[in-house]
Design a protein around this nucleic acid. Structure first.
Lengths: 255, 255
DNA sequence: CAGTGGTCTAGACCACTGC
DNA sequence: CAGTGGTCTAGACCACTGA
């Protein structure tokens, strides 16, 4: 049961934070202070702080100090809304939609490339890994804050020779375009997971250590086949996904 | 652009992993080896390894070495399935349901307590923070692997004097019971997020550093009010949530 | 037992911030 | 400038693992 000293320090600091003795945004004692308080070497103190940092509990700013993390009010992205109550009245919205008290999200212009399918893309589209797919990428910010990276993957036989291969936005939307091409969407499946960000994701979102990302793989289907897979990567510290089913009393609804 | 030495080491090791020179499950060079390879002190090498650990890229085992993390095949939990295609034919399944090639999940017996509502619970149920709620907790394992912690919160005026206040499972399920009590469920909303685990969650799931958890707050509604909020906490390294809408070709369906 | 990672110390210098 | 965190070194001892 004997704990390591750095764990004991982390435990004590965590207790101070959980109890409210250290409020969100407040500065922790400086590292030299903690060295004195806990009679430990500076490296040991830093080990304790690293623990808390990687748990997302504190953030450090060079030259300023270490601060209790402030939970930012999250953006809410509507994954889907399905009304099943009035029979036959089914509706569903599509990503990306995000709410932040009226602020409009800005989406970057779509960038397009042809690339071999990764194993995860191949699995979802039921094609062979390495087969070429058309990839359309874009990212989203709201009030200047980056919150979304997305990439859509289309099987080459569907996208080849169509506007899907051209950069820039698709006016009517890709769902309508796919329908025009003979592949009306009849359903979709979302697969949701979480993991630590890659260095590229950390840089794009400006994430601090101890912040995961949420990954949604949305596969869209026509009557008999998968016609698109879209991967949405959200920052875990500021985004919540909503998914509404059935009838929800108005004052409880999102937006 | 000059990087810190420990970042350069981490970058180099990451490159070896990404390129496949170090395969999943393979042991990295020992710390003394890395000290020699990179002409750095052991603490610097350990800083680099800590970086990779907290990104979930490697795991260390005392006495054995540091290993490239092996992505475990994830369990798939069905968040919901909503058929909207044949108009009027709406169906929806409820948590927890998990698939792992036929293995049955085991759920612990429910534990019940009365507790003041936290701010997040109060917000979802539209009650006042500190109001008493009935809390029913349980956890789930599959093949002995813990994958879920859940807690349901019921407003006291609904649950008081009902079987919801008694420990143990509810035979007909809480949805049916709530309907019997005059609160038939007409819809629900899921709010999905990700964060780093608390110490208790780390211990329960046996998580290593660099593994987030996925949190789903499901609020269930009767015609005019919220009747229950259930919080599901999943381990991020082994669980994927599925959410299916509409008609999906049979060979693409989950399970 | 030898080899691995885990903990801890003491001290040095650098980089950033606000005054 | 003084105070903060960021990087790095050198060395010590402990705890765990497999042979």
């Amino acid at each position: 049961m004997a704990q390591a000293k750095y764990q004991a320090i982390a435990h004590e600091l965590r207790a101070r934070i959980d109890s409210g003795a250290l409020a969100p945004g407040e500065r922790l004692p400086s590292e030299p202070d903690l060295v004195r308080q806990f009679n430990a070497s500076r490296n040991t103190v830093r080990l304790a702080l690293a623990l808390l940092t990687n748990q997302g509990l504190v953030v450090t700013r060079q030259g300023l100090g270490t601060f209790v993390a402030e939970p930012a009010k999250p953006f809410t992205a509507l994954l889907s809304r399905v009304d099943v109550h009035p029979a036959g009245q089914a509706a569903s919205t599509f990503l990306p939609e995000v709410s932040d008290e009226g602020a409009e999200p800005e989406m970057s212009r779509q960038v397009v490339e042809k690339a071999p399918a990764s194993s995860s893309v191949a699995e979802k589209l039921k094609i062979t890994r390495g087969d070429l797919v058309v990839v359309r990428r874009r990212s989203g910010t709201i009030r200047g804050i980056p919150w979304l990276m997305m990439a859509s993957y289309f099987p080459l036989d569907i996208a080849s020779g169509t506007p899907l291969e051209q950069a820039g936005d698709i006016a009517q939307g890709s769902i309508a375009l796919l329908a025009d091409l003979g592949f009306p969407q009849v359903g979709y499946a979302d697969e949701i997971g979480a993991r630590m960000p890659s260095p590229g994701e950390t840089a794009f979102f400006g994430l601090s250590a101890g912040t995961p990302v949420i990954v949604v793989n949305r596969t869209a289907y026509a009557e008999r086949r998968a016609i698109r897979m879209t991967r949405y990567v959200y920052r875990g510290d500021r985004v919540r996904l909503m998914h509404e089913v059935g009838s929800i009393p108005p004052r409880f609804r999102t937006t």
